[in-house]
């Protein structure tokens, strides 16, 4: 069973959202269009729509992340769902409970959707395979594998600024090797038909066979890599990797791959700068860029809520459709 067959129902509707891999362009466009509709909700006096009323959504975070969890929580609440927040890293698994045990226990609480973050690649896929048939799973980041809602909110942000993808050159800078965000962004950009996707970083942070495996152009020089690009996406560099066998120091990293106004000079005049956050100022970029006119970093955060609303409501919608069809079948008998 591959991810493609796992996350769509027979009619091609989104049942789970685990990875961008295998999804059609039209489905990605559908997510973006729906998110567009949800943007206005935040401006309403009552910031809620009733699409997931009566549903229970559990944020299952095996890895800590305040920001991602918060935006998922807000998205679920704006859809009128009841939300459970579970930080498993500190509770169940520490007592030797297996992932499957945790899942079964939560299913017994009649949860309709799991939003899962886990340190292991493939974890969300595994949970989706073993979850009860009426439960949806949304991947909020698994290991180095996938972080599809982050990628979609980035696509959403890019589309709002640039419109069409087909003429776009996009550069992703930094730790590609360990980045689930980069993998999902690259898949999304290629599916949406971006003209060129580049990755930029030292060889220690670029995975094996990246060009063929991911469909990107590889650069090791920042100035050269951002030449004529329309979008620059900076990746977060984990603190423990700044001084290790991968990199000598954050100082040298910033000297080579840190984004400054001066190094952005070769990019397209209208180029935007993105970062999934939280930024290490003075490592990935300096404050001038982070807070500058090209930066759309804060927009990414608010767009994240709309995109997550879109994905969650689509998955719940598929559930409702299935329940309805099951009901009709029962009536027919």
């Amino acid at each position: 069973m591959n991810a493609l067959t796992t996350q769509l129902d027979e009619a091609g509707n989104l049942k789970h959202f685990l990875t961008i891999e295998g999804l059609e362009r039209s489905l990605l466009i559908d997510i973006l269009d729906r998110a567009e509709g949800f943007l206005g909700v935040a401006q309403q006096a009552v910031k809620k729509v009733p699409l997931c009323r009566g549903k229970v959504i559990a944020n299952l975070f095996f890895e800590n992340s305040t920001r991602t969890r918060t935006t998922f929580e807000l998205a679920a609440k704006r859809l009128s769902a009841d939300v459970l927040n579970l930080n498993i890293s500190t509770s169940a698994t520490a007592k030797g409970e297996t992932l499957l045990d945790t899942l079964r226990n939560l299913e017994a609480m009649h949860v309709d959707m799991f939003v899962v973050r886990h340190a292991t690649s493939g974890a969300a896929h595994f949970i989706a395979q073993h979850a009860a048939p009426h439960v949806s799973v949304v991947n909020a980041g698994d290991g180095r594998h996938s972080h599809p809602t982050q990628a979609m909110l980035d696509m959403f942000t890019i589309r709002r600024h640039k419109g069409d993808f087909s003429a776009l050159r996009v550069a992703i800078v930094g730790d590609i090797l360990h980045s689930r965000v980069a993998r999902s962004q690259i898949l999304a950009l290629n599916t949406l038909g971006a003209a060129e996707v580049r990755v930029i970083g030292p060889r220690t942070l670029i995975p094996a066979d990246a060009a063929e495996a991911l469909g990107v152009r590889v650069f090791h020089d920042l100035r050269e890599g951002v030449r004529d690009v329309d979008v620059v996406i900076m990746l977060r560099l984990q603190r423990e990797r700044m001084s290790s066998a991968l990199l000598p120091s954050e100082h040298e990293y910033f000297q080579l791959f840190g984004l400054t106004e001066e190094r952005l000079a070769t990019a397209h005049a209208e180029a935007i700068v993105m970062h999934p956050g939280p930024i290490n100022r003075g490592v990935e970029m300096d404050s001038q860029v982070a807070d500058g006119k090209r930066s759309v970093i804060l927009e990414q955060v608010s767009n994240g809520i709309a995109v997550r609303m879109a994905v969650m409501s689509m998955c719940i919608g598929t559930q409702n459709l299935q329940a309805q069809q099951a009901g009709e079948q029962r009536d027919a008998h």
């Binding site: 891999e21 690649s121 493939g122 290991g143 180095r144 594998h145 996938s146 360990h178 980045s179 689930r180 993998r183 995975p207 094996a208 066979d209 990246a210 063929e212 495996a213 991911l214």
Partner: peptide, 15 residues
């Protein structure tokens, strides 16, 4: 195996 599939899926590879 460290190669195309490990890169695509973000699985830790063995070179």
């Amino acid at each position: 195996h460290e190669g195309r599939v490990s890169t695509r899926l973000g699985l830790p590879g063995i070179p």
